[in-house]
């Protein structure tokens, strides 16, 4: 009883704060000076039509490197937590067969979903989307595959190789930026090219593709760890 009253009191307190924030909020009419700089000079400095991408990959590229590192850390901790002893993986079987609709649909959809993910991260500097979104879509195709076939084993060696190679190349491109251009993760190590074309904006398509591959393989790794635990529970 006291607990419920306390919960309601906390929520009511927060709600009053929110109401006063709400009444005093008005969207501004003009951009902040920093955003104005990005809007006016982003095209000459970075050459990407998608300004969010130029902020993420070039202006705040170090942030993105940290973000990818955190994702890697999460994947590592999850696989440490959920380590399974794969003794006899053949004998365990799901309680129920997968329905035919999901089986057929996943066979049809999986390649399409994967191509969509690759499209999203390759075109990250031109259209909405980018490495993180594309990587998540690629991982979705693995979810579909796991739903259709719960015994499916993702090849950990391939995933680990893709993940480490793309991570190391990301840092390597960043260091190349110090040597050949203005600083760490500068995208001008390649020519900026024609504005709005696929091969433009310097190193951004390469960096974002690497981020996409890395995110996709990390998310698939986390998924396959959770799936491994599920298989273990079937056995018991």
């Amino acid at each position: 009883m006291i607990r419920n009253i306390l919960i309601i009191a906390i929520l009511a307190g927060l709600a009053t704060v929110f109401v006063s924030l709400f009444w005093n909020f008005g969207s501004s009419d003009t951009l902040t000076p920093l955003a104005t700089h990005y809007a006016n000079n982003g095209v000459e400095e970075v050459g990407a039509p998608n300004l969010v991408t130029s902020v993420i990959v070039t202006y705040r590229g170090l942030d993105t490197l940290g973000e990818v590192t955190i994702l890697f850390l999460v994947a590592a901790i999850v696989s440490f937590f959920l380590k399974t002893e794969n003794t006899n993986k053949e004998e365990n079987s799901p309680k129920r067969e997968t329905s035919e609709i999901i089986l057929t649909a996943s066979r049809l959809l999986m390649p399409i979903v994967m191509v969509l993910g690759i499209y999203v991260f390759v075109n990250g500097h031109l259209t909405p989307g980018g490495g993180f979104q594309g990587g998540a879509i690629v991982a979705t195709s693995f979810v579909l595959m796991l739903m259709a076939n719960p015994r499916f084993q993702i090849n950990h060696r391939i995933i680990a190789t893709v993940e480490s190679v793309s991570g190391i190349s990301f840092v390597f491109i960043g260091v190349l930026g110090i040597l050949l251009a203005g600083g760490f993760l500068d995208n001008k190590i390649l020519p900026l090219g024609t504005f709005g074309k696929l091969f433009s904006a310097g190193a951004i398509p390469i960096i974002y593709s690497l981020v996409g591959l890395k995110v996709g393989s990390e998310l698939s790794n986390i998924l396959s760890n959770f799936q491994g635990i599920q298989m273990k529970n079937y056995k018991q």
Binding site: L31, T32, A35, Y38, V55, I56, D63, F132
Partner: peptide, 10 residues
């Protein structure tokens, strides 16, 4: 403003 959107992605 593109900056909050980039931060939200993070």
């Amino acid at each position: 403003d593109p900056i909050p959107q980039a931060l939200v992605l993070t």
